[in-house]
Amino acid sequence: MKLKQSLIIALIFVIIGITSWESYWRAQGLHPTLNDEKALWAMTRAKVEEATKEDVIILGSSRAYFDIQVGQWKNETGKEPLQLASTGSSPLPTFHDIVNNTEFNGTIIVGVTPGLLFSTTYPKAFPWERPQSKVDFYFNRTYAQRLNFLLSVPLQQNLVLMSADEEEWNDDIDLKALLKRINWGKLDTLPPTPPFYNFGDVSLPRNMSMMPRAATDTAFANSIIKVWHFFGKGSPPPEKDATTAFFMHDVKKFKERGGNLILVRPPSSGGVRIGENMGLPRDRFWDSLVHVAQVKSYHFEDYAQLKNLTCPEESHLSLEDANFFTKELVEILKKDNVLPNHKTK
């Protein structure tokens, strides 16, 4: 047996194959980015254990994730916030975790996407299960999983082929995702689920920014808008009372130990905004929450510089606008003197 020859041949073909594969996907317009995975969330969550009164944690859904830019925030305040918002998630499970499992008594900004915050408290429901699975992962992760993540970061940052995202986007390029693209005899679902493509770049420290393509390519942005409309139409009615009661229980506990809670309503626009105004009108949801929470609250519509911001795909800001939003938000918070120990310019 001439195994050495076989090994050399295998190595040559693997190098050729992988290089070709990587080049092909780059030629298709893909670029390397971190996967928005539980391990990344857990790494940031771990920092909460050491966080002090001076720290700021951002919770919420994808709007808080896309629209509050960690780098910009740090530029404005001198302190890097801990970004723990998650896509498609209610902020309640993560807020509950921080209030009940840590001693943190600094500042928590909760981004309010009404359709998600007021959605449900049912543990198996999508907007709850997703963030809860991240919390569970944080507590159950093994040292091997931590090491795997640390080793995978440089690979994810440099190779397009490392794109097996937990979100399972329609444009993922891992083998399983590619096989899913084969459309033989797909079962009919009513209404048909529109394809959902990745439109955010993730970087360290945990930060999400809109891909330039989503901000400039209208057809691509429209494909994402279709998804929001699909979810909007198919969503069950909000459980306002149950979600508010759950939230308030933790708000009370957090305030009692000296925590500083801030509610922020990031922008939405177009059809999504119209749908939100119809299904989750401000007076019945946002204003009601603000009234019971009795904490500093900021709705984008109340600020001239924010109210006209347009989301390219109706729900999130482009990177440029997100930086602007972050800068303005920090300014507003500073004026109200609600941010801890912000740097003096």
Partner: peptide, 23 residues
Amino acid sequence: PPYILGIVWAIMTFLIIIAQGSG
């Protein structure tokens, strides 16, 4: 033949890499 074994080996390795098992 060694070259066949090498190619089979390469295909398997290539598929492992692009499958990107999530552990």
